[in-house]
Computed example of a mutant assay.
Amino acid sequence: MSSSSTGIWSPVRRAVNGSVRLAYDQLVENTGGEPLLVATGLGANRHWVPDGLCRMLAARGFAVARYDQRDGGDSTHLPPGAVRNPVSALFTGRGDAYSAEDMADDAAAVLDALGWRSAHLLGVSLGGAVVQRVALRHPGRVRTLTTMAAVPGDISGLRTLRHVRVGTVAKFARLRFPDTAEGGVAAGVAVSRLVASPRHPFDERAAREAAERGADGGLHDREAQARQIGAQWHGPPISAIARPTLVLHGADDPLIRPTAARAIATRVPGARLVLLPGVGHEFPERAWPDVTGEIRALADGCPGDPEDLAPTV
């Protein structure tokens, strides 16, 4: 989990998609750079994306903004759905609270609120699946697409099993923490431990300090996670993505197998796959130069403004 220094971020603002209000902020450094929007993962708020990584992206020429998914962080939390267990939602592919199209439209609403006609997209974990769907549903808004630690955005239910480490999912399912500030901190430490690379010593003190700076109740809000996972995609396959695409994945990811990244890279035309050695389902500082360098190289090869692309709905 990352620390988050409020002084380097704008005040939180809200974008609107129907009845949903989406919390977002923007890095105050290099606001005139190329727009880059970061979409976060399951149950996690925007503070999980490390400030240092965002500042490195800014130094490489990007104007960085981040937002909380619906049912996460400071964004709108929806009423309970029929499926209230995230494991059941994952493996049955059932959910009735909202669709994956709604979540893709959320990202477009944030772009509108930022005044960005188009942007580079970086999605992590669940956010990686979301940005894949944005590239399908709103291709004219996407300059480049970087998906990290994610499964293919057009699969659900039992088809997901081949890419998920069930043992880690079971450990997540057993986590129980009180709905208190300390419970949020404890959840942050526990989740950080589960997603870290097993090849490196886990720094519990640093994880606790980071969790204390950005406690996130969404990490143990099982019903909200079930609604996010249960959001089903009804659009075209990811093979229809027509934007420059980078697929990043930790070689040691203890949650999502690298086979997921290989599947995305194989199916998205022209996609580049980069496996990050010694990286789990996380953003360790040692990987920041490689991650930001790859995103910069992708942007440098972008053919131009995608405004003329018609949306696929």
Score class of each variant (00 low, 15 high):
Asp74Ala: 02
Gly61Glu: 03
Leu255Ile: 11
Gly217Lys: 00
Val49Ala: 09
His220Phe: 14
Val12Lys: 02
Ala261Val: 12
Ser192Asn: 12
Ser192Gly: 10
Ala224Ile: 06
Val64Glu: 03
Arg94Glu: 10
Pro254Trp: 11
Pro306Asp: 07
Leu145Asn: 04
Val83Arg: 05
Val49Lys: 00
Leu219Thr: 03
Leu126Ser: 14
Asp74Met: 00
Cys54His: 00
His249Ile: 14
Pro237Asp: 15
Thr76Pro: 00
Ala113Phe: 11
Arg176Gly: 13
Asp203Gly: 12
Arg13Asn: 15
Glu204Asn: 09
Leu158Asn: 11
Arg21Met: 10
Pro35Asp: 05
Ala15Glu: 01
Asp68Trp: 00
Leu36Gly: 06
Ala135His: 02
Gly157Ser: 14
Ala63Gly: 05
Asp154Arg: 05
Glu307Lys: 04
Glu101Ser: 10
Ala173Leu: 14
Leu248Val: 06
Leu22Glu: 00
Leu219Ala: 01
Arg205Ser: 11
Arg143Cys: 03
Val124Ala: 01
Ala108Phe: 05
Leu158His: 08
Gly7Arg: 10
Leu90Ala: 12
Ile238Glu: 02
Arg162Glu: 15
Val130Ser: 03
Arg199Cys: 12
Ser19His: 15
Phe62Leu: 10
Val291Arg: 07
Arg70Leu: 06
Ser156Pro: 08
Gly73Ile: 00
Asp102Arg: 07
Asp96Met: 04
Gly235Cys: 13
Pro198Met: 09
Ala231Asn: 13
Glu307Asp: 11
Thr146Asn: 10
Thr144Asn: 10
Ala190Cys: 10
Ile264Leu: 08
Ala271Lys: 02
Asp308Val: 10
Glu29Asp: 15
Gly218Asp: 00
Ala150Pro: 07
Val12Tyr: 01
Trp9His: 10
Val247Phe: 08
Arg193Trp: 01
Pro237His: 14
Ser118Ala: 14
Lys171Val: 07
Thr144Arg: 08
Glu29Trp: 13
Pro139Ala: 02
His77Val: 14
Asp105Leu: 04
Ser88Met: 15
Leu57Tyr: 03
Gly278Glu: 06
Thr266Arg: 13
Ala15Lys: 01
Val130Ile: 15
Leu161Arg: 14
Thr266Val: 07
Arg296Lys: 14
Leu255Glu: 06
Ala240Phe: 13
Ala190Phe: 09
Glu307Phe: 08
Val151Asp: 03
Ala310Thr: 11
Ala251Ile: 04
Glu282Gln: 13
